[in-house]
């Protein structure tokens, strides 16, 4: 059997693949955080809860309404995104004139509410969602075994990430978004409906998190606390990459997933913490973050 630094090749590539998939989730979530932060200037602490709601909506949709995976993939981000827009319109907007730290605190409270409510109904142990039939099984690529669903998650996450990059950097709507990030008061003076744009942006960021939740449902146990622990890691990823650049968020997310996967191979004890350690290193060497502009 081929060995890489004392580890069987198949185990090595397998862990790397797992890491890359985690990285895809980091990328999707930190991208959503960055999009929301750009225009609203708040860090959405409810982002993990929205990811969790996405996974639960998928699960419950199948159990009670018979909605299959493929429909969920479209429908759940729309529904949860719409829910996010309501939150923005009726709650977050009321504090938009205040210090941005209040936004963090408010969304933290929302996260506690969503998480606590679902814990009451479903407990903290995870529920299982079956892998859709079309994506069951896997290929033996010779150097590794690739479960089809994992390959699909990676592909779907990358397509959505790059699609988001395209919308923001290459379309008129994205141009509005970027202009609003620079100076929303001036934009409003030019006749753009900025409040609507803000609502849509928050909804879009939340929809990205919900999309990640749908992808995660067959992969990880679906539990009310699945979002919060993930979100703290994503915060570290965001500190490492900075929230200024879309591509930066995507790249940092994937890279951190890979580093985590590598750590799992060579020093499993540190797999939980390696991203935080990278964050410390980045803070010492490049305080503004890898892609950050301001300190």
């Amino acid at each position: 059997m081929t060995m890489i630094f004392g580890v069987p090749l198949a185990a090595f590539t397998g862990q790397l693949m797992l890491g890359l998939i985690n990285g895809a989730f980091y990328a999707l979530l930190s991208l959503g955080l960055a999009v929301i932060f750009g225009l609203l200037k708040i860090v959405n602490f409810a982002h993990g809860a929205m990811y969790m709601l996405g996974a639960f909506a998928t699960l419950l949709g199948m159990q009670y309404l018979g909605i299959n995976y493929w429909v969920s993939l479209i429908l759940v981000p729309l529904v949860v995104g719409g829910f996010g827009m309501l939150i923005e319109r009726f709650i977050l907007r009321r504090i938009s004139h205040l210090d941005h730290l209040y936004g963090l605190l408010l969304t933290f409270g929302l996260a506690l509410i969503f998480e606590g409510t679902l814990v009451n109904f479903f407990g903290v142990s995870g529920l299982r969602y079956p892998t859709p039939e079309l994506l069951q099984g896997g290929y033996n690529l010779g150097f590794m075994f690739l479960p089809i669903y994992r390959g699909w998650v990676l592909l779907a996450a990358l397509v959505v990430c790059l699609g988001t990059w395209f919308i923001i950097e290459r379309t008129r709507l994205g141009a509005y978004l970027r202009a609003g990030t620079e100076n929303s008061a001036l934009m409003q003076a030019f006749g753009v409906n900025v409040p609507l744009l803000i609502t849509l942006t928050y909804g879009f960021g939340v929809a990205l998190a919900a999309f990640a939740g749908v992808l995660a449902a067959p992969l990880y146990p679906v539990s009310p606390t699945m979002g919060s622990s993930l979100l703290i890691v994503v915060f570290a990823v965001v500190v490492i990459g900075g929230m200024g650049s879309i591509l930066g968020s995507i790249l940092t997310g994937l890279a951190m997933g890979l580093i985590e996967g590598l750590t799992k191979v060579y020093y499993p004890e540190a797999a939980n913490t390696v991203i935080f350690l990278v964050m410390i290193l980045v803070l010492m060497l490049r305080p503004a973050g890898l892609f950050g502009k301001e300190a």
Partner: peptide, 11 residues
């Protein structure tokens, strides 16, 4: 419901 109530207090 402790966490939910604490969350509501936050909001």
């Amino acid at each position: 419901w402790v966490n939910v109530i604490l969350g509501l207090l936050f909001v």
